[in-house]
Amino acid sequence: MKRGTLPLTALRALEATMRLGQMRRAADELGVTYSAVSRQVRGLEEMLGVPLFEGPRNRLVPSAAALALQPALTEAFDGIEAAVARVQRRDRRVLDVSCLGTLAMRWLIPRMALFQAAHPGIELRLTTDDGPVDFAQRRIDVAIRVGSGPWGSAQATELFPDNVGPVLSPALMPEDQLTPQSLLGMTALKTRTRPSAWADWTSSQGLAAPIQTLEFEHFYFMLEAVIAGLGVAIAPDILIRDDLAAGRLVAPFGFLPSGMSYVALRPAGRNADAETFVDWLIEAN
């Protein structure tokens, strides 16, 4: 059967019935009546010359022919749906961005107005996540993550290095000289998302691990605790840059590379708006 003669309405009715398991549910999804779906399927059977369902109406069982058609039909209609969605999004110029939660709250969101002012035609739709990125399953144009890779088949652009160091409230600074050793007398704030942060830093200084610690479930909570003066934490400079500039925190010993980097991940294929956003991320650092 040539493409121009394919009964697309009937094939769509068959695919929906197979996928949903009932003609009535297929009719609801397609916005037609049950009898309309039934007529389309019967007409398709007559055209193909084979039965597509067996059994009573309330217990339809797909035939071998229907089972053979289903994978190709579902893949074809999924592809059409995805292509139409991409065109709609391109017309609206909506960019779906997935970002680490703390980075979004403490760095990206405070700067989003600058991006919108520079690129008023692009609307950012932001979600937060720190897990692996599956571009095939989720509608994401750019994902911002931190790590050392590899990043699989994604297009990866390094944004900035992950530099970390101890930070604390100015209220906790001693009157005499602060040394790395004297930090160990303070409460060391930790987070489950970076459990080895203190061990890595004290090892780089030739020191033992801190004794008194306080752990938080989320990185954002830990940073708020640092600002409140509950102790000292090992933090990436990108996350507390605004706090340093405002004098809410101090970093007495600077920052060292952790071996990781913040990266922008994109699916294969060219997306001009995604490229524009990634270029802006690099410049905004």
Rank of each mutant, 00 (worst) to 15 (best):
224 E>F: 01
271 N>A: 07
176 D>G: 08
252 P>R: 10
223 L>H: 07
270 R>Y: 06
269 G>I: 03
180 P>F: 08
210 P>F: 02
253 F>D: 01
189 L>A: 04
254 G>P: 04
263 V>E: 03
275 E>W: 04
276 T>C: 15
268 A>L: 13
230 L>S: 08
229 G>R: 12
180 P>W: 08
175 E>Y: 07
253 F>K: 11
182 S>N: 02
209 A>Q: 12
177 Q>M: 11
231 G>S: 04
202 T>H: 05
244 L>R: 10
199 A>C: 02
242 D>H: 09
199 A>S: 14
262 Y>L: 05
238 I>M: 10
233 A>I: 01
260 M>W: 05
178 L>N: 05
253 F>Y: 03
279 D>C: 06
274 A>Q: 07
240 I>D: 03
190 K>P: 00
276 T>L: 10
183 L>H: 07
249 L>A: 10
179 T>S: 15
198 W>G: 02
221 F>T: 14
257 P>W: 11
186 M>W: 04
187 T>E: 05
178 L>D: 01
252 P>L: 06
266 R>K: 14
224 E>R: 15
249 L>W: 01
255 F>Y: 10
208 A>M: 03
252 P>C: 06
265 L>T: 03
205 Q>E: 13
213 T>S: 14
191 T>W: 08
194 R>T: 11
214 L>T: 09
207 L>Q: 06
185 G>Y: 01
265 L>F: 03
236 P>Y: 08
225 A>M: 09
199 A>G: 08
268 A>Q: 15
203 S>Q: 15
203 S>R: 15
247 G>W: 00
185 G>H: 03
191 T>I: 02
258 S>N: 04
216 F>E: 04
177 Q>C: 04
220 Y>L: 12
229 G>W: 07
207 L>D: 06
251 A>G: 04
189 L>W: 06
271 N>V: 01
208 A>Q: 12
245 A>Y: 02
244 L>N: 10
217 E>Q: 12
225 A>F: 05
232 V>C: 08
228 A>R: 14
261 S>P: 00
225 A>N: 09
226 V>R: 03
276 T>Y: 01
239 L>Y: 05
242 D>G: 12
215 E>C: 08
224 E>T: 15
266 R>Y: 02
227 I>K: 15
241 R>F: 01
261 S>K: 12
273 D>C: 05
189 L>S: 06
207 L>T: 03
268 A>N: 11
248 R>L: 09
191 T>M: 11
190 K>I: 00
226 V>N: 01
177 Q>Y: 10
230 L>P: 00
263 V>A: 02
179 T>V: 03
219 F>D: 13
267 P>W: 06
231 G>Y: 06
244 L>I: 09
249 L>V: 14
237 D>W: 07
240 I>C: 10
257 P>D: 13
183 L>S: 07
246 A>N: 09
261 S>W: 04
258 S>C: 03
231 G>P: 04
215 E>R: 07
212 Q>N: 13
194 R>I: 05
245 A>R: 13
259 G>D: 05
273 D>F: 07
224 E>I: 07
210 P>I: 01
223 L>F: 02
187 T>I: 15
252 P>Y: 12
249 L>E: 05
236 P>V: 00
278 V>M: 09
258 S>M: 04
268 A>V: 10
203 S>I: 00
277 F>M: 10
175 E>K: 14
186 M>S: 05
183 L>G: 04
188 A>P: 11
232 V>R: 06
261 S>D: 09
257 P>I: 14
247 G>E: 04
253 F>N: 05
266 R>S: 11
223 L>P: 02
232 V>S: 02
189 L>H: 10
